[in-house]
Amino acid sequence: MRRIFLVYALVLVLLSPAFSFAAGWRDGTYEGWSDAGPRSIQYAKVFIQDGEIAGVILREYTDRLVEKDWTCYDYPPFGEAARTLGTKFVEAQLAEIDAYTGATGSSTGWMQAVERALKKAGDAKKEKQYFDGTFLGRSEVADRGYYEVVWVTVENDKITGLQVQRVLADLSVLDPDTYEGFPLEMARQAYAQELIGRDNADVDAISGATGLMNMLNIAVRDALDRASTK
């Protein structure tokens, strides 16, 4: 009878929400990024202590990779979501929580970012170099004040897609048709052809557009860093 009671007690412990047997999270600080949408990307920094989620910091960036300041953002639901959802992840000890009403897109992105951070914290061997998805990256700023932003799509550890925009010093986006000089879209297409199918950003064969190529290489490396499972 006593043996039956002990087995029953063990089952109750294993089924308890507080028991993180399946998680196996290692203590430390882990970062995760969501898939990039056309206008934003979400970021999470997750702190693991004693095998549990001890804290979560949430951020969101625009399509120019400029961080949104929720303290003065002109859409209140976003600010409330950014301020409160970190605590919800700690309470749930999961990456899946209820989305904040009025900020569903941001909430969903943060859940994905937290999920990816927790996968990095897990003990399981990383079978892939990158998460599948689309990730934002940016180059350094050129002498004339602009920089390149890329959307890099990754599937099965290979780059399968690339989109590019040039952000000017005033944070507006350049219309390629107004660019004077080497045809910008032609150079971008040549770069994409060299990049697709790779697992890195070591393109070195764009004649006549060396400066652009170097900036795009940096931007793609930045995106792949966000995609990394390590």
Rank of each mutant, 00 (worst) to 15 (best):
L94H: 11
V173R: 04
L184K: 01
V152N: 01
L85E: 14
T62M: 08
G145T: 03
A9S: 10
S228M: 04
V173D: 11
R64D: 05
K88V: 12
T134I: 12
V220A: 03
G181F: 08
G37R: 02
M215D: 07
M186Y: 02
V220K: 00
Y61T: 06
V13R: 06
Q189A: 09
Y61C: 05
I41D: 00
S207K: 10
G211M: 15
P176L: 07
A92Q: 09
E80R: 04
Q189F: 02
L15N: 03
R226K: 15
L171I: 02
G211H: 11
F135S: 02
A223Q: 03
S228I: 07
G161N: 02
E194D: 08
M215E: 07
L65D: 02
E96R: 08
G197A: 12
K45S: 05
I4S: 09
M1T: 07
T84E: 14
S20A: 11
A187D: 01
Y130I: 12
R221A: 08
T108R: 12
F19D: 00
P176K: 07
D225L: 11
Y147S: 11
A142G: 09
A227K: 05
M215G: 14
A227P: 03
N214H: 13
R83D: 06
L85A: 03
L14Q: 05
F78W: 00
A223I: 15
D222P: 10
M215C: 01
G79M: 02
D74S: 11
Q112H: 02
T101F: 12
P77F: 01
F131S: 02
A219N: 03
R26W: 02
P17M: 11
D123G: 15
A95P: 07
I48C: 11
D202M: 07
D27E: 04
Q189D: 14
G105D: 06
G122Y: 06
I57W: 07
A201S: 13
Y191W: 01
T62Q: 02
N156Y: 01
E155M: 08
T134Q: 04
K230Y: 12
T160N: 01
W110P: 02
E140V: 09
G86F: 06
